[in-house]
Design a protein around this nucleic acid. Structure first.
Lengths: 129, 129
DNA sequence: GTTGTTTGTACATAGACAATATACAAATAA
DNA sequence: TTATTTGTATATTGTCTATGTACAAACAAC
């Protein structure tokens, strides 16, 4: 069974942000469902090789986004988040640019066009459902 | 006429990296062609509202990637970059994940599925040519 | 009830990173 | 020869990241 997430301590993106991004993806995709409990910060921290406060920071950001309810002793509970937030205009406006920049970066790094197209279509297919 | 690039000084991504990403996108897309000259670091720095050394850092990264030739007095010249670099396996391997995380982030921020699909297809179309 | 254990929280600190200030070096034109 | 325009080098300052450590709350065991 694959681990919930893994991070790269040498990546340019800071660890706490990698944790947020990975967990948020699971939440959006439904791999993490309302009612689920995330691992305690100390446990996940050991698995990832970081300090538990780094995981706690990530959990807090996700809680502020409305995904989690944090409580001592019980842990991090995944919420229903019935009414998704109103559109964040900054994120919406920058999406196209960020997507172009990501594709440009991997093209510049030598990833072939067919491979990029394959991933783009895979994502699109998953969104259509 | 739109400016060559603009950055957001309050974004989580550091300024020098935003500059690199924006210019690299123009280079990959062909909006910047071999033989073109980029603005002097002091000029672009004023336009963006940063220190000229921040722009100089960005130019140096792009030069190391093989896109630019930097020379005093003449400025930053766009190169042909005939033989693209060998595939960077780390970038290639993480592309799918980063794409999923970007889409998850904007979905979480309220961007609608049709809009995301539109952008994905737009990019894909541009790649097919 | 008291105590111990398991959780998240708060805050201070060390280190890494980003942005700037300032001085310098090279190339070219006047 | 001198002035100007460019990129370069290095030290410094400030911000961000990750950690160390102590604390607080909730619950179970007894």
């Amino acid at each position: 069974m694959p681990p919930l997430l893994s991070i790269d301590l040498h990546a340019p993106l800071p660890a706490y942000r990698q944790i947020v991004d990975a967990i948020r993806t699971h939440l959006v995709n439904g791999a993490l469902q309302p009612g689920d409990l995330l691992p305690p910060v100390r446990r996940l921290a050991i698995d990832l090789g970081v300090h538990f406060n780094t995981v706690a920071d990530a959990y807090r950001i996700l809680a502020e986004e409305g995904w989690l309810d944090l409580k001592r002793r019980r842990g991090a509970l995944v919420l229903a988040r019935t009414a998704p937030r109103p559109i964040d205009p900054a994120v919406a406006a920058s999406f196209a640019r960020r997507l172009r920049e990501l594709v440009a970066e991997v093209r510049a790094a030598g990833v072939t066009r067919p491979r990029i197209l394959r991933e783009l279509r895979l994502i699109a297919k998953g969104l259509e459902s």
